[in-house]
Design a binder for these strands. Structure first.
Lengths: 200, 200
DNA sequence: TGTTAGTTTAACTAAATGGTTAAACCGTTT
DNA sequence: AAACGGTTTAACCATTTAGTTAAACTAACA
């Protein structure tokens, strides 16, 4: 592993765990097993190093689902694929969403440097939802609400883990894990039920 | 307004906007219009001042709904009350949940000093949900999932505002506001539909 | 083998930051 | 008006932290 790679890995680790303000260049250097001056040799400043980590993390969080969407024309099929896929991804990278959300709240302008250069999978999904509504396959719902409902139900339980563990599960970590194990199935059922077409 | 009050107000403002690490004692002093040494005169340290602000904010976020729950026996009635109430509260204090979530993620032990000393409204709600399931008024669902579904749908769109504005609404603030205006009604419909009892 | 370009390090600098101190201020009591 | 307790301030201190510098090291190459 090159020096640059170990810096990137260490910086990822520290920035995502502690945020921009909380992360210290010395800690990143220690984590990478190198001298602090080397950080500045490879990446001029803390800001520059962070920018690299942040955009990488952002690109991970908003994954390229376009491809899978191309192959999928049925909304229910998509939901049954997307929910466990994204739940699984977030559970493997539990600090990622909180990191992005926090830094974006600290400095909302950051996203302007990223969003423009990126293609998001949502336009296709939006059309798919609108079509399902038009064909009366699901109840009338604006696609933004349905998309954000899915993201909310998946991401919030991870981002709010310490709060949920404390407030709902009385600090019982095992209960929380047990809860999360069933989460994906529960979200699928919740979402699918929530959009069933009305009878009358 | 006493000096202590203006310090509390300033500290609330700065801590909630910037977090513990991001907040600087000098900035709090400036915001309060006083000398930095006065902060240490009234609250010995940054840590002590923060603790006060944090537990106050936490107590706000987990509001005492017990009372309202006592008067309400019907789950649907409760949901129709709770969702707009909480949505409204969060929209008036949009930085509060992200502040709590971030600090709790940075230092999960903090909650141990708070959760124990507090009575939460959830046990009653839990029984209400279990009863509704038993009476076949709603589909089988664990009360933890339903509670967290509600919280997720309400809190995430606020906490993730910059991300949603950027990714879903292409930086169009007006679209986001328009979306949020309908959010409460949409959440009610989503939740109520998601728990309707199954036919077969 | 000596030169060179790129890499790594120890030591340093300047600014920021949390916290302290001693003196000044101010209203109340005697 | 002198003394007193609580309040406020300016100046200061120690530590942390991002960033710099000059020298040492290393591998490739002339």
């Amino acid at each position: 592993m090159t020096t640059e790679e170990s810096i990137i890995n260490a910086a990822k680790e520290v920035f995502i765990r502690k945020g921009f303000q909380g992360a210290k260049m010395q800690e990143i250097a220690d984590e990478a097993g190198i001298n602090k001056a080397l950080l500045h040799y490879y990446f001029r400043s803390k800001e520059k190093l962070f920018e690299q980590i942040f955009s990488g993390a952002f690109q991970q969080l908003i994954p390229a689902l376009s491809k899978k969407l191309d192959e999928t024309t049925d909304l229910e099929t998509f939901i049954r694929f997307f929910v466990p896929f994204y739940t699984n991804f977030i559970q493997k990278n539990p600090h990622l969403p909180q990191f992005i959300i926090h830094e974006l709240n600290q400095n909302p302008d950051r996203i302007r440097n990223l969003a423009a250069a990126q293609v998001f999978p949502f336009p296709k999904l939006s059309r798919m939802i609108a079509q399902a509504v038009a064909e009366n396959k699901i109840r009338p719902i604006e696609h933004e609400h349905l998309i954000i409902n899915m993201l909310s139900l998946i991401i919030f339980p991870i981002v709010g883990k310490p709060m949920i563990e404390g407030v709902i599960f009385n600090q019982n970590t095992e209960s929380y894990q047990n809860f999360m194990a069933k989460r994906s199935d529960e979200v699928i059922e919740t979402i699918l039920n929530s959009i069933k077409p009305q009878k009358n």
